[in-house]
């Protein structure tokens, strides 16, 4: 990029002559243009593969099949089946975010005293990184191998103990199954995002509490919890956004129907499009962006509060 030809220190002799200002200004403009050219490839790339797709979604959500502006796509969102999908997505994300946050915070608390650069902590954070981010399809298969119809645990319970975990119907490939697998990747994510906050807690604060006569309970109630609350809430929001935008796990696990909104978008993208509804998928996508943006905005606010003490 930086090969753009401007020479900052070229031709010093020129400035000695009398009518200097005009060329100097021109040269200055050229130099500015050259400086901007340095970021041009990046901006072009981002425009094509990030900005345009975003605009396609935003504009498409308000356009009819033949490109006329319309609100009918957004009105379609209030249809029963789409609203239900949004509702289920939100409930699923909220439940797994709260469960993941509580269990993850406990695990992070159990880990925080391990040596920061010790092998245990490295191994656990790496494992958490894999489970939290890499997940998707592989985790779906992990659970199929575990509690699928011929899964290890299913078979073991059936053969050894005579327990049929699916006596009430096969729930793995539906919302309860999704909740279980989602929790499996939410807990590690919580560990990753909550550990730094826990690391910020200083032992001196506890000593200060006890030297002032405070009990353990008072320390937690009056010092640690208020300090950790913004970090905890913020992490929970991040978990919510994470679950809300997850697609791969659900796609691999659920093959019938589209209970949650990412799967609705899948069917809008892949199935035969009903006339006049070409852009409903884009409207749903816009809805998802809005939910995630709100959640992330709240997260950013909370994060700023957290960093005041635990940064």
């Amino acid at each position: 990029m930086s090969v753009v030809g401007h020479q900052p220190d070229a031709k010093p002799a020129e400035s000695g002559s009398a009518p200097a200002p005009a060329p100097a200004i021109r040269r200055f403009r050229w130099r500015r243009a050259g400086v901007l050219l340095g970021v041009a490839p990046f901006l072009a790339f981002v425009t094509i593969f990030l900005i345009i797709p975003t605009l396609v979604v935003v504009i498409g959500a308000f356009a009819s099949d033949d490109g006329q502006p319309t609100m009918s796509n957004l009105r379609t969102l209030t249809n029963g089946y789409i609203l239900d999908a949004f509702g289920r997505s939100i409930v699923l994300s909220a439940v797994t975010a709260v469960a993941g946050a509580i269990l993850g915070a406990l695990l992070a608390y159990a880990l925080v005293t391990a040596k920061p650069n010790g092998l245990l902590r490295r191994a656990v954070t790496s494992a958490c990184g894999v489970l939290a981010q890499f997940g998707g399809v592989t985790l779906a298969f992990a659970f199929i191998a575990t509690i699928g119809l011929s899964g290890f645990v299913t078979v073991f319970l059936q053969d050894q103990l005579g327990i049929n975990i699916y006596s009430g119907g096969v729930w793995l490939f539906d919302l309860p199954g999704l909740a279980l697998v989602y929790t499996y990747f939410q807990i590690p994510l919580m560990v990753i995002v909550f550990l730094p906050a826990l690391d910020g807690i200083r032992p001196q604060w506890r000593e200060a509490t006890s030297s002032l006569g405070g009990s353990t309970w008072q320390y937690w109630r009056r010092v640690a919890m208020p300090l950790l609350a913004p970090a905890f809430l913020g992490s929970t929001l991040l978990l919510f956004a994470n679950a809300f935008s997850a697609y791969a796990t659900a796609a691999a696990l659920v093959s019938q129907g589209s209970p949650i909104i990412p799967l609705q978008i899948r069917s809008a993208l892949t199935s035969e499009v009903v006339l006049g509804q070409q852009n409903v998928g884009k409207a749903m996508a816009l809805g998802m962006v809005i939910v995630v943006a709100i959640v992330m905005g709240m997260y950013a606010l909370l994060q700023r509060r957290t960093s005041r003490w635990l940064g």
């Binding site: 975003t54 809300f244 697609y247 990412p262 899948r266 884009k282 996508a285």
Partner: peptide
């Protein structure tokens, strides 16, 4: 989300 990006 990736699922949104893919739409665009």
């Amino acid at each position: 989300p990736a699922i949104v990006l893919v739409v665009g």
